[in-house]
Design a protein around this nucleic acid. Structure first.
Lengths: 116, 116
DNA sequence: GCATTACTTTACTATCAGGTTAAATAACCA
DNA sequence: TGGTTATTTAACCTGATAGTAAAGTAATGC
């Protein structure tokens, strides 16, 4: 179940360790040890997290000597951003405020001009 | 583990049934039966999904006679949108194209001027 | 060739997630 | 009061997740 791409992406992001890994990758390619360094966790745990991120296509891996560097592959985040679009009108404060503002203007001009 | 708010929100969204429930709530308050209707799933399963959404503060519930209507509470989506901000530069096509364009300009000027 | 470094795989454990059926609760309505 | 409708709770099953320790692989470099 929940094997669709969007579910996979959300699921991969639902873990603070994995989000921290992605954040670290915004500064460029990193080795597994680089990524593991801040966490109080064994290497196999990190390997697993990387597998989850890879399966969700949020990272790409390569080989350089004995290293297997990771780099950010942000496209799935774009899909989330697009999914979010349908909700943006419900949570965007600036939009709400603009809307309120426009409605205020509207009612003021009605007061002044006596429009219907 | 992963008890932080953002993880909770991502986790709640990592299920197509729950995303469909949220989508349906964009058109207004709905009863549990309304929400359950499109799914090939028993009521207890829906109750559980609603509990997950409620725990993630993505919905709010009330009481009206024997109904317990649900309404969208989109604020946590705003948090995701804000989290996304740090990645937007990596996936926004317009930015990428601008970046490509600047790099092209750069390499052209290198060709012409013989810069290192 | 052999130790070291950098990982991954395997096997195992514990907990959580998503579903079920059956029973419980709670408000309406005749 | 007692039946019907709406929803939840309880108990259970199954499979996935997140971690571990220990062994395996693979490239580097003396």
């Amino acid at each position: 179940m929940s094997s669709d791409q969007l579910s996979n992406t959300f699921s991969a992001l639902a873990d603070p360790t994995r989000r921290a890994i992605l954040a670290k990758l915004t500064t460029g390619e990193k080795t597994v040890s680089d990524l593991a360094e801040p966490f109080d966790m064994t290497m196999p745990a990190i390997t697993k997290h990387l597998k989850v991120l890879e399966k969700a296509h949020l990272i790409e891996r390569s080989k350089q000597a004995q290293y297997r560097p990771c780099k950010l592959h942000p496209e799935p985040l774009k899909d989330i951003d697009e999914w979010m679009e349908q909700y943006r009108q419900f949570f965007e404060a600036s939009f709400d405020r603009l809307d309120d503002y426009l409605q205020q203007l509207q009612s003021k001009s009605e007061d002044i001009n006596g429009n219907e």
